[in-house]
């Protein structure tokens, strides 16, 4: 069975560029809309790339800012200056 890497974000204006960046950078991502929040699931690994968010946001953005709109996640976290990655790969 594939392991599911997952992130749940608030469904608001602040999160929209992040959601769009995830959709663009993670082929095969599945979307579950809930009132107030959106859950994004990927097999094995899911990545949020700083450059992709900045491109949509039009300003510098640090991956740590994701904490302001983060609701939940699944997978082992790897956070660095350029990405926020959830993964079950070793």
């Amino acid at each position: 069975m594939a392991q599911i890497a997952s992130i749940t974000l608030l469904h608001n204006d602040d999160a929209r560029p992040i959601i769009e960046a995830i959709l663009a950078d993670n082929p095969g991502v599945r979307v579950l809309n809930m009132p107030g929040a959106v859950k994004l699931d990927c097999d094995d690994e899911l990545i949020v790339k700083r450059a992709s968010v900045e491109e949509r946001l039009g300003r510098p953005w640090e991956p740590q800012e994701i904490q302001l709109v983060l609701v939940s996640m699944a997978g082992n976290l790897d956070e660095d200056d350029d990405w926020f990655k959830l993964s079950w790969k070793h």
Binding site: L10, G36, A37, Q67, V69, L70, V71, S72, M73, L77
Partner: peptide, 13 residues
């Protein structure tokens, strides 16, 4: 709830 939950992701980690 969601404001608390944003901390929760850190707690889960």
């Amino acid at each position: 709830g969601f404001s608390a939950q944003s901390d929760e992701s850190r707690h889960m980690t």
